[in-house]
Nucleic acid binder design. Structure first.
Lengths: 254, 254
DNA sequence: AATGGCCGTTGCGGAGGATGCAATGGCCTC
DNA sequence: GAGGCCATTGCATCCTCCGCAACGGCCATT
């Protein structure tokens, strides 16, 4: 809506790909170098971009601080975290917490597996929305028409042969997920990784977040992972209860 | 330099304090509500602010994603991380990695203590610059005049009775730190927490980052912590060596 | 050592966009 | 049902942002 700001903000994802010099930025924005310079300077003054010693620009440190403060304002995360850690101590696998925001689903917390396996997911990274178990839970809770139009707009990349192939298939899956109150991703994103997830609900019963346990099938089979489902659901319910204020927190109850 | 962008970006720290509605934002920016609305809309389209259900605005999720990608581009961090983890496994205490950027010092990595103690520090959070051991190392490496003017501009909050009280005291401390090649913070930030730190240097010998080990004196005394100094310095030197390319990394050496 | 090219930087006039005003409409309260 | 509060919109005015062109520093090339 505001051209100048729009251009300035477009620089950020651009620099996220890696450092760039003035000319590159100007080219990518399709503006004159002097314009790009002014925008970069303004971003710099706010600490959002940093000028490294070779004069190229990259994302700045203030961005971390802002992201940190943003995450601290999400109270679901704070409440959920100890539960996630405890779950990880019980089962040993990777635990994720995700929320839905403006058509994206993203991880806001993660407790790493205690097995020596790496999993490619990062806090803050958008989730593969058509296949991830947490995404299914979050989207299944949307009102019907919205869910429909949203599903139509999506791409359905076939990460593996078991990925959700199309909008109708996705909508059917969402219906199933909503009905059963939990979700899975069985090799839909990475062939060898399975995942079970459960929803976290607010006072009004709406899904505010979703959590999942993931493990590669070199560690546990699909069926073994599914035996964890009751534990995952209980954890999610405990978080829901605390989030809704049903359990007294540290604060003195008035 | 660009008024419009400047105003837009000023909204971000404002929202970092907590959610705000349109009127509040307009007041704080000292602009008309319609102007604030347009700016907020632009920020929203880029995912930097999010409109919650009560119509108030807060910081958006894209900020995480950006911050994450920013941190991934810092190769010191990537190289240092395994070393930090190993150090943590050896001594059990909290390990920090920090860099200096535009007059701020901030943590870019952290490995939590294996003792059941909480430490108040977060990745991305600016460091208490006048007392933290890592900050002393990073600032001690600045060229003389710059260091001087910088020290003058600082505030010297007395977190504890052992905090650095003034610019001259700070400059003396920096001289000492530079000479000895390591730094401490003995109860200067929090009364009961001590800290030893060592510098990480690039090819040209300049300090590019600093790392530290921190522990509360309920766990180890000041002197006990100081016995870890050689280990900390060796770790820092190992990271420096690898960062300078003296040790072959995973890549095939050409 | 001299030269050419590249890149960042600056000053300036014109044009396009951002600004603030005033009016509308939805929502909640009294 | 009336009043007030807040978000939202259309519009005319003015300001500010834009692209141009010229400068200057730096590096590589001859």
């Amino acid at each position: 809506m505001s051209q100048t700001v729009d251009r300035a903000l477009s620089i950020l994802p651009l620099l996220a790909e890696g450092p760039a010099d003035l000319g590159q930025v100007a080219d990518r924005l399709d503006v004159h170098k002097s314009t790009a310079l002014r925008l970069l300077r303004t971003l710099h003054e706010h600490g959002l971009v940093y000028r490294q010693s070779d004069q190229r620009y990259r994302l700045g440190a203030r961005l971390f601080a802002l992201a940190q403060e943003a995450v601290e304002n999400l109270d679901v995360r704070e409440i959920a975290h100890p539960h996630l850690v405890r779950l990880n101590e019980n089962c040993g696998h990777t635990v994720h917490l995700a929320v839905h925001e403006d058509g994206e689903v993203l991880y806001i917390d993660k407790v790493d597996s205690r097995y020596p396996v790496r999993m490619y997911s990062r806090i803050g990274k958008p989730v593969a929305i058509t296949v991830a178990a947490v995404a299914k839970l979050l989207l299944a809770d949307l009102p019907d028409p919205e869910r429909r139009t949203f599903a139509e707009k999506l791409d359905y990349p076939m990460y593996t042969s078991r990925s959700t192939p199309s909008a109708p298939a996705f909508l059917r899956e969402l219906d199933k997920v909503r009905e059963q109150g939990w979700a899975t991703d069985l090799g839909g994103h990475e062939e060898s990784i399975n995942c079970v997830a459960a929803p976290i609900r607010g006072t009004d019963g709406r899904v505010v977040a979703a959590m999942s346990v993931s493990a590669p099938n070199v560690v546990v089979t699909e069926t073994e992972l599914l035996t964890l489902l009751p534990l995952v659901r209980r954890t999610a319910e405990a978080i829901s209860a605390e989030y809704s204020g049903k359990t007294p927190t540290k604060e003195t109850s008035s």
